[in-house]
């Protein structure tokens, strides 16, 4: 177990270093500078120089990179060049909304896809299986942006049932219902593609498992259908699903960025876009490191979960 962990952590460190270096190089190669935000500063090159000096942007690139690295290792992600605020704070202000949205969507898409996928596999070839299969085809290929706008048009503009923007009604007392109303459409948009994607794997996985000999054993024991499904089928079908989910998370995250824009959701999305466009190096660096870190973490968690579901796997 320990060698496994240390090997994985070693890999993670290499990956994170690579990501940070690549981001740094790319940011510096890309045209533009954060101080371009104020074109009138050109009137005053010394102010630009002073501005850069105050932020240590006048140092040679390798010095900048290593001092960034050093600070990062001490948990300091630096100060945003645009917001003049610690990047860590900027991130923490936005992470909860994104987590709320992606978390709910992941949950919802699993809640949808597991029953439907199981149903589909058990009734393979039936009318409903075909209905579900065509949904998965459609769901995977609908663009988030388009679906979001469509839902807004229907539910906000036409029926006036649901709000078109934001996370809650401003100026209102806290109300769970209000949050849920705001959460509903973005969650649907973000869940559709994931659910469609998961259904395929659940269906294939369950189908595969119910062909297995041990399912005959379970039936021969006279177990109830639910017991067979939950104890024997799903536990085995969960294995490939864990991998699928962990591989899918980055897509979910990317999808969330677009969905956040469409529904004016106050998450990471806007910051990521604006930080990239305004060449806010420290922010972009922190975001990329964070995303890379989370992806590595999810993979590790997936591996551990895998091991806890499948006793045959031991990590060494």
């Amino acid at each position: 177990m320990y060698p496994f962990f240390s090997r994985r952590i070693f890999h993670a460190i290499i990956v994170l270093l690579g990501v940070s270096l690549l981001t740094f190089v790319m940011m510096n190669l890309a045209p533009g500078d954060p101080y371009h935000l104020d074109p009138e500063l050109r009137f005053n090159p010394e102010a630009v120089a002073r501005w850069k000096e105050l932020r240590q942007l006048d140092q040679p690139l390798h010095v900048q990179y290593f001092s960034w690295l050093k600070n990062m290792l001490q948990g300091d992600f630096g100060i945003s060049l645009v917001h003049n605020k610690p990047v860590w704070e900027l991130m923490m202000e936005r992470v909860p909304a994104t987590l709320l949205l992606t978390g709910t969507s992941l949950l919802v898409s699993l809640l949808i896809s597991i029953p439907l996928g199981v149903f589909s596999a058990l009734r393979k070839g039936s009318f409903w299986d075909q209905v579900i299969s065509s949904f998965t085809l459609g769901g995977v290929s609908i663009p988030n942006f388009w679906l979001g706008m469509l839902l807004i048009l229907f539910f906000s503009y036409h029926f006036k049932w649901l709000p078109a923007a934001g996370m809650r009604t401003v100026g209102m007392e806290f109300s769970l219902l209000d949050y849920l109303k705001h959460l509903l459409l973005p969650t649907v948009v973000l869940s559709v593609a994931s659910a469609a994607y998961f259904i395929r794997y659940v269906r294939a996985g369950v189908w595969e498992v119910i062909q297995q000999d041990y399912i005959i054993t379970a039936r021969a024991k006279g177990l109830g259908d639910m017991t067979i499904l939950l104890r024997h089928v799903l536990r085995n079908a969960a294995l490939p699903l864990i991998t699928v989910i962990s591989l899918h998370l980055p897509y979910l995250f990317t999808g969330a960025m677009l969905t956040e824009y469409v529904f004016s959701w106050p998450g990471m999305g806007r910051w990521i876009v604006s930080a990239t466009l305004s060449r806010d190096y420290p922010s972009v660096m922190a975001i990329n490191i964070m995303v890379a870190f989370l992806v590595t973490l999810f993979n590790l968690v997936a591996d551990l979960l895998y091991a806890s579901f499948d006793p045959r796997i031991k990590y060494r």
Binding site: S156, A164, A165, G166, V170, V262, F263, S264
Partner: peptide
């Protein structure tokens, strides 16, 4: 209110 989506 910050609403980046103009249609919204």
């Amino acid at each position: 209110r910050i609403i980046p989506n103009q249609e919204a």
